[in-house]
Write a protein that binds this DNA or RNA. Structure first.
Lengths: 273, 273
DNA sequence: GGTCCATATTGGTCCGACCAATTTTCCGAA
DNA sequence: TTCGGAAAATTGGTCGGACCAATATGGACC
């Protein structure tokens, strides 16, 4: 199916894995290009190309004369999330939850911008797409894809290139991570139809605030349908004062588990003066 | 000052510029590596390395046997915004406005998450940093940096790696684009102090919703202080029904001007069935 | 112990060659 | 003429070896 990966690609993948699983730790120096080439049995040029790719990913820093060093995951490029999903083997739930959080923020904001600036045809197109979610004829297996396309549409309609580029990175990872949806319960389909009506009505009125909230609700449901895991039952030991209980549903965003945890440094300290 | 750029870096910059200014258009084939090497007077390997970097940026696609082709800006990596800022010569105002929009969305969301999960020390550190904004002893020239650090702190405290990585890309571009602030008017400092009190109060109560709104207000002011340009006077010809006038201040997110406009394709059409 | 310099290490670039995937050219069959 | 397919040209991928320049290392010297 997929084209055979080039040699430099394989090498890049291998070094990337060794970094992510802790073989090479942040701040450490990587073996010299010549050594790696010898060890992997490939030409030095291939190793070079691999390192250049990893440098663009923000995973390593190459310094002429000095060796290459591993950088902290915190300082990498967003693109790194493409490579983070399956680091432990199975999709990392914490990362997926964080992606969904980010997607919700950005999409809600984009929806607001979109309603404020989108042309009537764009809006009509969006309404048509949204209505498919409520249509009983749409197969359940297609729902995730349709939702994904709605988010795309909203993002594009916002006219914000930055959001679009961000989505370019987020979408494929989420699509792969979420996979086929769990079957909607008896009530699930009804709730979905309800969300659809809310979005449609908000769009019809060009009501930015309402659209934002409606889109948020839709995406929240999506997250709730995530495979039940340690994250889905918010284990808040000491409930805190929170005057807005509507927003309590989000998965608790704890730090990523697996090997990469070691990259997570404490928040940068506040300046002393 | 800055280290002399490597040869492959120069080549990458040059090809990137030629793509962004329209010399090579999306979908077109780039000259063969051997030709480019000859034309630029460098070794083919250097051209190769440059192309690999541009491929990681999502600007070109390299296919073994077939040439390299230019990709649409819409499909590039977020990292491309680092290179987009100065394409026309001066900082692109539309892009900066879009960056500020994106930053506001993400930071507001991160603030919510942060309040819900941050430890008390983290919160205290945040409050300390925020209070510096209101302190009359803080020089005006330092205010942008302090705000930038507050956003960093909020982002980190949210515990969301995706948001952190996104910020890694956004922050340097915004810091460079905004540059030294325009002097605050007589009322400006007072308004700032007011924002600071709002954030501090919200943090003290661990009120997620209030914190989110307060942070939003702070960032909005920042955008308002952007250099007056064609963007800052929202030229909305036909005012539309919008029941939430509080949010009307955002710069109208029109398409990017300059040569790159040609990359902006219409929103992807809704599926037909 | 600290400074400074010769040397080793290491990334950056170049040359020339060959392989493999793709594209283009062109000729013969329908 | 048109279409299909084989041959040739084009083009990216990898290799090996060589030299330069920036950095790191270690030891002599003060």
């Amino acid at each position: 199916m997929s084209a055979a990966p080039s040699r430099s690609e394989s090498v890049a993948d291998r070094i990337r894995d060794e970094i992510l699983n802790g073989t090479y730790k942040p701040g450490e120096r990587l073996p010299a290009e010549r050594n790696m080439a010898g060890r992997l049995g490939v030409n030095r040029g291939s190793v070079r190309e691999a390192l250049v790719k990893l440098e663009q990913l923000g995973l390593v820093e190459i310094r002429r004369g000095g060796g290459s060093t591993v950088r902290h995951l915190h300082d990498a490029s967003v693109e790194i999330i493409r490579h983070l999903l399956f680091v432990g083997g199975a999709p990392n739930h914490a990362l997926v939850a964080q992606l969904l959080d980010a997607e919700e923020m950005v999409t809600a904001g984009a929806a607001r911008l979109a309603v404020e600036r989108a042309s009537d045809p764009e809006l009509a197109s969006a309404r048509g797409l949204v209505s498919r979610l409520g249509d009983p004829r749409t197969r359940e297996a297609d729902l995730p894809r349709v939702i994904s396309e709605i988010v795309d549409l909203i993002t594009d309609a916002s006219g914000n290139l930055v959001l679009r580029l961000f989505r370019n990175t987020v979408r494929p990872v989420l699509d792969e991570a979420l996979g086929p949806p769990r079957p909607l319960g008896r009530g699930g389909r009804r709730v979905l139809a309800q969300r659809v009506r809310a979005i449609d009505a908000a769009l019809a009125r060009r009501d930015a605030g309402a659209t934002e909230e409606a889109v948020r609700s839709l995406l929240r449901d999506r997250r709730a349908r995530l495979k039940t895991g340690p994250d889905s039952r918010p284990a808040r030991s000491a409930p805190r004062k929170n005057p807005d209980p509507r927003r309590m549903r989000r998965a608790s965003p704890k730090e990523l588990p697996w090997p990469a945890t070691r990259f997570l440094r404490p928040s940068r300290p506040a300046p002393t003066a």
